[in-house]
Amino acid sequence: MSLLAIQVLNGLQLGLLMFLVAAGLTLVFGVMDFINLAHGVQYMMGAYLAATFIGWTGHFVIGLGMALFGIMLFGLLLERVMFRHLYARSHLDQVLATFGLILFLNQGVKMVWGAAPLSVPVPEWFQGSVLLGDGILYPVYRFVIIGSGLLMALVLWLVVEKTRLGMLVRAGASNATMLSALGVDVRKLFMVIFAFGTMLAGFAGAMAAPILSVEPGMGDQVLILAFVVIVIGGIGSIRGAFAGALLVGLIDTLARSYSVDVMRLFVGPAAARGIANGLSSMFIYLLMALVLFLRPDGLFPARGRT
């Protein structure tokens, strides 16, 4: 029971991080019909910038703020130089170009920061653990991640559902051409969404930096998971991304933890960990296949999308 509680919290935490990445990705997809494979490396850049700025300033919150600003500028720069020229292209061109960007940035961070993983200290305020009855300890920082993830989700929901900008975003996700015909400057809207999505991914990377190792290629797996989340939730749908992310986070974490125990019944501990790692990674893809088989448009398809 206590193990289950911890695993559910871990799953929630992974799910919320996934949501931050997937939210930007799904909007960029939904509104611009643009496949940005490089969204994962933006998560990675967020983590690297956070590691660097926190190291410089020695202060978590200031470093985080600088990293967020930096990643947003970086996103705008990429949009200006490269992505803007790809919106009208075929998906094939978009996939290939952003794939090139991944190769470049993964290798680039290796050149700048080295191949060895960086570690970011957990901020002083949030060190230590909380006692959750029954003698279960859970690190404070992980609660911080869960809390800030929920906060971001709330802010995102308020912006998308309650503001004029959000209305434009939803309209864009349903039919960008129509929106443009109604006199909205869609290019500007694209830029705002893009910068915002990049910042969310960067924020997820920065928040994850103290509990994961910051290393080249760390964004690749996150990107693919975010794809799964979006497909499960329905492209262009924030609600779908939220539900999908929590589902993926929980299932992945629980499968990972329990499949080791199950495998241990059959083979030795080292082999069990190796096998369980691979098998549990497959679970969410099976989940995705099931969802797509039953509902090809995902669980919560964006309304009015053609």
């Binding site: 490269m82 170009a97 090139g100 991944i102 190769l103 470049f104 993964n106 290798q107 680039g108 050149m111």
Partner: peptide, 11 residues
């Protein structure tokens, strides 16, 4: 670090 050249070439 050949991928640093290869990536931009693709782009």
């Amino acid at each position: 670090h050949w991928k640093v050249i290869f990536g931009p070439l693709i782009i």
